[in-house]
Amino acid sequence: MIKVEGLTKRYARNVAVDNISFEVEKGQIVGFLGPNGAGKTTTMRVLTCFLPATDGKAEVAGFDVRSQAMDVKRRVGYLPETPPLYPEMEVREYVEFVGRLKGVPKANLQARVDEVCGRCNVADVKTKLIAKLSKGYRQRVGLASAIIHNPDVLILDEPTAGLDPEQRKETLALIKELAGEHTIILSTHILPEVETICQKVIIISKGKLVATDTMENLNSRLRGSELLEVEVGARTGSINKDSVQSRLSSVAGVSRVEFKDVRNGHLQFHVESQQGESVRAEIARSVVSADWDLLELHGAGLSLEEIFLQLTASDKGAK
């Protein structure tokens, strides 16, 4: 449904998006992640034909964003970072206006307006002035108008920003529900959201693609290597941090040991295992045989959040 090849976007001097490629299949929900200034909004603007790419190709719903912009625009629903609302309009009027702009046939415009307003839970504020709506309601009005023409592809830039937890859950449920008929790309900073609704994740950082994978692959990657929290204390007398660290590192299957903190005289470490290795028993044995106390040993799990931080941080280190 969406095909991006070698996309590059340069603003006057700085490169906002640097040679990224990815593909999204029909009916998928894709999470588009990256720290601030990574180039998410810029990529979405290229996909919606708002900005032309400096280089590379992008295809949306089978049409090229550069040469067949009109066809793309007809098939894309876009919710920008700040919903593009006219404060002087009433909600119903606004959604209707967007419907007309997007070319919804007059005959079923009213029905569509009622339908999307109901779906996005804005039916109760239909006659309110947009200027008087709260941030969350504005977001939902933006979403309602983005789906008014029943687009094949939905591009949502931080659709849940500024929503309360209840509304966020509802919005996510709505997005998930929409996924059947629409292909959706959504950008967000809130990673648990991605974990719950996305089938695929694209992570970019500083304009570069750092990872693109299905949620399943990422999950198995998470299960593959384990992150353990280990707390070690001295049975008698004091305990040397370095000697514990080197002993833990020498356990077979451990890839990385990181000192975290001292609590009540106990030392806390993060231990990461290698792919597919189970190291808990070995760690316990090794600590106890050195005549230390093993006070805690539990999995911390490698969450999407950590993968995200690792990937985007290692990119920083490389630069």
Partner: peptide, 13 residues
Amino acid sequence: KTGTIELLATSPI
């Protein structure tokens, strides 16, 4: 300023 130009520019007009 308000960003509504984004709506107009991404509509099929």
